[in-house]
């Protein structure tokens, strides 16, 4: 099964449950009107939460992205070392 189908499947399942609750297909009749208001807004809440979570994760990872200054300096030194050694062995640059 492709990743797309997995996503569509999960969404359909969640959407189905949500619709069933909203339309009270299960026939529970146990919920107060204020419960339906919450339920009605639930998908939007979820979307916003997911969006914020994503932004947070990307922002955090951006802020903690290692800057390998030391690796760059080490490389510069090694470039000089390599050039000297190769020149000694007859390399013409």
């Amino acid at each position: 099964m492709t990743k797309l189908l997995q996503w569509l499947g999960s969404l359909a399942l969640l959407g189905g449950i949500w619709a069933a609750l909203m339309l009270d297909l299960v026939g529970l009749h146990a919920f107060s009107p204020s419960w339906y208001q919450v339920l009605w807004a639930l998908p939007t809440y979820l979307l916003v939460t997911l969006g914020c979570y994503s932004l947070g994760v990307v922002g955090y990872r951006l802020a903690t992205f290692n800057d390998c200054q030391a690796a760059s300096l080490e490389l510069q030194a090694q470039i000089r070392e390599a050039r000297a050694d190769l020149a000694r062995r007859g390399m013409k640059f």
């Binding site: 992205f65 800057d67 390998c68 200054q69």
Partner: peptide, 16 residues
């Protein structure tokens, strides 16, 4: 300890 060097903020953001 992985990371990058010589990338500006924009490139890091796109990458992340």
């Amino acid at each position: 300890n992985g990371g990058v060097h010589g990338w500006d903020l924009k490139r890091k953001l796109i990458s992340r």
